[in-house]
Write a protein that binds this DNA or RNA. Structure first.
Lengths: 215, 215
DNA sequence: GATTGTGAACGGATTCACAGCA
DNA sequence: TGCTGTGAATCCGTTCACAATC
């Protein structure tokens, strides 16, 4: 029964969640694959097919119950439980990311009943002038304590926002500490064991590939 | 002869450029598809196939001349000419992006002979307290002047770093002003004419999809 | 009548495997 | 011999189309 779920499908699930939360906010009771498709820019067939990887959430002739679908998606993405995120690198980019993550609806969506439990609970840096301080209640540790704190806080995901030359060392440490997933903002290809999932966001690569289309 | 080039291929080209610049830095004269594959984490066959979309850059039995390949890739990505980039939204994220773009090797790689000509030349915001000021020589304009400045500076790419609720309006303005490509950091799906290329970087979506793998 | 869930068809991207050339 | 360039084969994700169901 447990078919392997393609990565592309997993990447679309949060988008469906965002869509269904919007329908919920607008107090729709049900939503069709057609409506979800319009909202996300995908085909209705794709929406339905994607869902089948995880189960049968709809009713034929009717559509999907918004509340039920929302809950299912939250469970699939595990944001109905607590997922702790660590942030390594508290320079310019790191601070901007922390600001965004702590303020935005990612970490808290209170007007809407159920706050996300995807939480940035610790930051790491090497700069002694900020190690030991707090950012909006989030403690900043020295990177040397990464492994220790990852275990203590049960951190599962690490966001890497350090300079390129340090990124691989941090990634290796993360892998050793048992981190499950890494979101890498440094402009280097990371080498980690297969069991660690890596997503890479690279401003340089994005801009350079867009430059191709400026003809 | 001019076959259509798949988007996935275009997205890999900057990675090849980064690889070949590294080989150049280490003073290799030639590089094989095998070596490029190891560096990038792709298969040699894929590297070769990707290149064929743009021409024949190698010598059979030998490999690719590093200097020549580098030049070819820079021309393909149009970073041998000037490409002007504008940044809309100069809050926390926008400032961090500006900092990164202005300092990093994206915009300038002088130790290496030929600086990239992908340059952030203007920022836009609505905050009157920063409009009219400079950031490291980059002027900050009011968003109302977007179209005017885009034409004046010949801006081809816009980076959107505004709050979600304003992103669509900005994107529409960009499209009207003739911008060729948009890099969107706001957590919304943008609706623009097909001739405008959009890449989307969404921290929320990335983290939520990674959360799936934390089981 | 409407809409889901899904097997089958399709299409596009990756990999294979080898001919051709240095 | 070594490595590129590429047609053929394969793999994988998307779309189609329709039976099942409300």
């Amino acid at each position: 029964m447990m078919k392997r779920i393609p990565d592309v499908v997993v990447r679309r699930m949060p988008l469906y969640l965002r869509a269904v939360e919007d329908f919920a906010r607008r107090e729709h009771e049900v939503v069709s694959s057609q409506e979800l498709g319009d909202w996300t820019g995908l085909t209705p067939a794709q929406v339905r097919k994607d869902f089948t990887f995880f189960g049968e959430f709809g009713k034929q002739g009717i559509g999907y119950n918004v509340k039920f679908l929302r809950q299912q998606l939250r469970e699939i993405l595990r944001i109905s439980e607590n997922v702790h995120v660590g942030l390594v690198g508290f320079g310019n980019l790191g601070r901007a990311l922390a600001h965004y993550l702590i303020d935005s609806h990612v970490t808290d969506n209170p007007e809407f009943g159920s706050p996300d439990k995807l939480r940035v609970t610790a930051a790491f840096d090497v700069d002694e002038s900020i190690v030991g301080t707090d950012y909006r209640g989030m403690p900043i540790f020295h990177v040397d304590r990464l492994s220790e704190i990852v275990h203590e806080h049960g951190i599962k995901i690490i966001v890497i926002a350090v300079p390129a030359r340090h990124a691989q060392a941090v990634a290796t440490k993360c892998a050793e500490a048992g981190v499950k997933a890494i979101l890498n903002f440094a402009p280097v290809t990371l080498n980690v064991p297969d069991e660690v999932k890596v997503h890479h966001t690279d401003l340089t690569l994005e801009l350079q590939s867009l430059a191709f289309y400026t003809a």
